[in-house]
Amino acid sequence: MKQLSTTEVKQLLESGKSLNLIDVREVDEVKEGKIPGVVNIPLGLLEARMHELDKSKEYIMVCRSGGRSGRATQFLESWGYQVINMSGGMLEWDGETE
Rank of each mutant, 00 (worst) to 15 (best):
M1E: 13
K2H: 13
S65L: 06
D23A: 02
E77K: 12
S69T: 00
T97F: 09
F75A: 05
Q82M: 09
G67V: 14
Q74P: 04
S78L: 07
S56T: 08
L53S: 00
L76I: 06
P36S: 02
N40M: 00
V83W: 08
L76A: 05
G80M: 01
K31H: 06
G66S: 07
S15W: 02
I41T: 01
P36C: 07
C63F: 05
L4C: 11
D94C: 13
I60V: 07
A48N: 08
T73P: 00
S78F: 00
G37R: 11
S15G: 00
M90E: 01
K17R: 14
G80R: 06
K2C: 11
C63D: 15
S18F: 12
E26V: 12
G89L: 09
L91T: 12
Q74V: 10
L53I: 01
M86E: 02
V39P: 01
M1V: 10
V62D: 02
T97S: 14
L76C: 06
G67S: 07
F75W: 10
E26S: 01
I60G: 02
K31E: 14
S18Q: 15
R68K: 09
M50C: 07
G16R: 09
E96N: 01
H51Y: 11
V62L: 11
K10T: 06
N20V: 05
G16M: 09
L53N: 00
L13H: 03
Q3E: 15
I22F: 09
I22D: 09
E47N: 13
V27P: 14
L43A: 02
G67H: 10
K31P: 05
G89M: 08
K57N: 10
L43I: 12
T73S: 01
Q74N: 14
G66F: 04
R71N: 15
D94V: 08
K57M: 11
H51W: 10
V38R: 04
Y81L: 00
V9T: 07
Q3W: 08
W93Y: 10
E52Q: 14
S18T: 15
I35W: 05
Q11R: 06
L13Y: 00
T7C: 11
K10G: 03
K55T: 01
T97K: 13
E52S: 00
L4E: 08
M90F: 03
L19T: 02
W79N: 13
G70L: 07
Q82T: 10
L21D: 03
S69K: 04
L43C: 08
P42K: 04
Q11I: 05
L13M: 14
I35C: 07
G67D: 04
Y59A: 00
E92K: 15
V38F: 10
S5C: 09
E26W: 06
W79C: 11
E58I: 01
M90L: 13
M50T: 06
S65M: 03
N85S: 07
S87F: 06
L12Q: 15
R64P: 08
G67W: 04
L19K: 05
S56C: 08
